[in-house]
Amino acid sequence: MGHGPAVKLGKDNAAAYKGKIGISMFVVYTLVYFGFVVINATNPSLMQEVVLGQTFAVIYGFGLLAFALILAVVYNALCNAAEERLNK
């Protein structure tokens, strides 16, 4: 058969922890993303309101892109720390 990984992977004691924080962060981002979708679908004129000199749509859109990167970096830092701690 041979379904296993292309390279031999070491034992990862941090997998369960990483899975847990991955799910938590996924839930947080999903809520923020679908908040954006629901506002667009139900109250699109709210998106035209001016916030910080830009339309709310622009602020929310940039916010989603920036939030994605911030969460990704935080997630990576937590995973790195966990791997360091648990895979000694």
Binding site: H3, P5, A15, G19, I23, A72
Partner: peptide, 13 residues
């Protein structure tokens, strides 16, 4: 990133 990346690497070839 949060759900697929690492398990996909772990399970597949």
């Amino acid at each position: 990133l949060f759900l697929v990346a690492e398990p996909m690497k772990r399970l597949g070839k």
